[in-house]
Structure formats: structure tokens, C-alpha cells
Amino acid sequence: MATTKKNTPTKKTVQQKALSRDRLIAMYMDYVLENEKRPKTVYKFCKEHNIKEEEFYNFFGSFEGLRKGIWKNFYEYTIAAINKSKEYESFGNREKMLTFYFTFFEMLTANRSYVLFSLKEYESNMKNLVQLSGLRKNVKHFAADLIRDENAEKSISALQQSERIFSEAAWVQLMFLMKFWMDDNSAQFESTDVAIEKSVNTVFDVFDNTPLERVIDLGKFLWKEKRA
């Protein structure tokens, strides 16, 4: 009686199933941290990790695309984490922004060694910031959505806030906080948590046209940290 030969997965098939966008990112981050430099070519990187070059290109067109993908992951994981909270939807915009920043910086802290390397790799800050172009777009979109929802509840147009200005302010704020976090030497980065709270409160106070006590409070805090 003839028997049908079962299809046994080849090594290539097993590798293809095992490889994913996240796994490729993890390989790259591990390489950078272990070698303290970026891989020079996709070919050599793939050969070292026993994957075919075309498999790499199934996920990214270059290392530059992969680097941007890492920041996209940081953002997407942050959004997924805050959306799991049952209380999040009931928060006001100020609390939503605080939640976003606190969660995002928890993500950065979990990957601090890589983040510090990637943002200090070149002497030119502009070269280091190229990888953040996708993150900038996502953060501005997040901030614009917050203001758009709030504006929809205001019947008087004069009381509505500018999505463009607020979203740009949110991005500048994030850049400031990232620089602060990178230089923060406090235990568990407690000073960064304080900076997040004070800066978010300040921005919302300015946009809400409330008294500027918090602007002074933020200035005092930053001056104290600079002198420490």
C-alpha cells in the first residue's frame, strides 16, 4: 500500500515562521548594544543571524527604516498600554496627556541603553533626530485628536484651541522631556516624572488662559535641577 509522504517543514520554513518584525527589531537592538555600533550592511547582519537578506526586506527596506520602526513600536506599545486602562476614556485631556507621557517614558526606560546610544550616536543632533520623524507624526496626531475632541464640545469657536499649535507644542514638549530624561541621574528617574507633571500642567494652563503660577513653578524646578 502506497503511503503519502508527509511534508516535513524545512529549515527555511521554520525560520520564516520564527522571523517577525518584532524579532528582527530585537536582533538589531541586541547587535547594537553588544557591538556598540550599527551593523554596516544588511547582508552581513542577515548572515550573522542566519536569515536571508530578502527576509529582512519583507519587513524593512533599510536599517534606517528599521530604526524608525523601533520608535514606531515604542509609540504603538504605549497607545496599546494606555487603551487597556478602563479609566483612560473618562480622563480629561490633561490626564490623558500625562498618562501618555508617563507610559511612553516607562517604555523608554525599559530600553534606555538602546535609546541613549541611538540618540547620541552622531555629534550632529539633526542626524540623531532623523529616526524620530515617524514618532513626531504620531505624537502630533495624538495631541491633535485630544484638542479636536475638546473643540467638538465647545459651541463658541472663539473658545476652541488650535490643533496645529497644540500638536506642535506637544512635540516640542516631548523633545524637551526626552533630553531631560537622558540627563536625569535621579533614582528611578523621579525628576523626570516631576518634569512631566509640571510641564504638562504648564502647557494646559497656558492654553486654558489660567494664572501662570505653574510657569513660575516649572521655571524654579528646572533651575534647581540644572544647578544640582
Results as ranks from 00 to 15, higher is better:
N138P: 02
F204Y: 12
R21G: 01
L66T: 05
E190P: 03
Y43I: 12
D22R: 15
E76A: 13
S199K: 12
K5Q: 02
L177R: 01
K179I: 06
K179F: 08
P9N: 09
L119I: 08
V200G: 01
S85V: 00
D183M: 13
K11Y: 07
Y57R: 09
Y43V: 15
N151F: 03
N138E: 14
E163I: 04
N125D: 13
A195M: 10
F91S: 01
T192D: 00
I216K: 15
K198M: 04
L116D: 07
S191H: 11
M175P: 04
F189M: 11
K44V: 10
N73K: 15
K220F: 13
A170L: 03
V130P: 00
V215G: 02
Q161Y: 02
N50D: 09
K226L: 10
S186I: 00
F105E: 01
F91I: 00
K140S: 06
I156Q: 10
A187Y: 14
E48H: 14
S191C: 04
M97R: 11
F59I: 05
I196L: 04
T41Q: 01
S155R: 09
D208G: 03
W181F: 12
E87W: 09
Y75P: 03
C46I: 09
V32M: 07
A187M: 14
V32P: 05
Y31V: 07
R67E: 15
K12M: 07
Y31K: 06
A143S: 05
N83K: 14
I216M: 14
V14A: 10
P9T: 04
Q161I: 12
L19Q: 01
D193K: 15
T3H: 11
N50I: 02
Q15R: 15
L119A: 08
N138W: 04
F102W: 11
K154F: 00
S155F: 10
E64A: 09
A195V: 08
A81N: 14
K86R: 11
V206H: 00
I147C: 02
W71F: 15
K37V: 01
G65N: 10
F105H: 05
A158V: 07
A143E: 02
Y57L: 10
K52P: 00
A81Y: 10
Y28C: 05
I216D: 15
S118H: 07
A110N: 11
W181T: 00
M1S: 14
G69D: 06
E87R: 12
I196W: 00
I165R: 14
Q188H: 14
F189D: 08
H141T: 13
Y57V: 09
K72L: 14
F60M: 05
Q173E: 13
V130T: 10
D205Y: 12
L135I: 02
K220T: 08
S186V: 03
K72G: 13
A152N: 13
A110L: 09
S133A: 11
M27K: 13
R164G: 06
W171L: 11
I79D: 03
A110E: 09
E213Y: 12
E123N: 15
W181E: 04
K52I: 05
A110Q: 10
F63I: 08
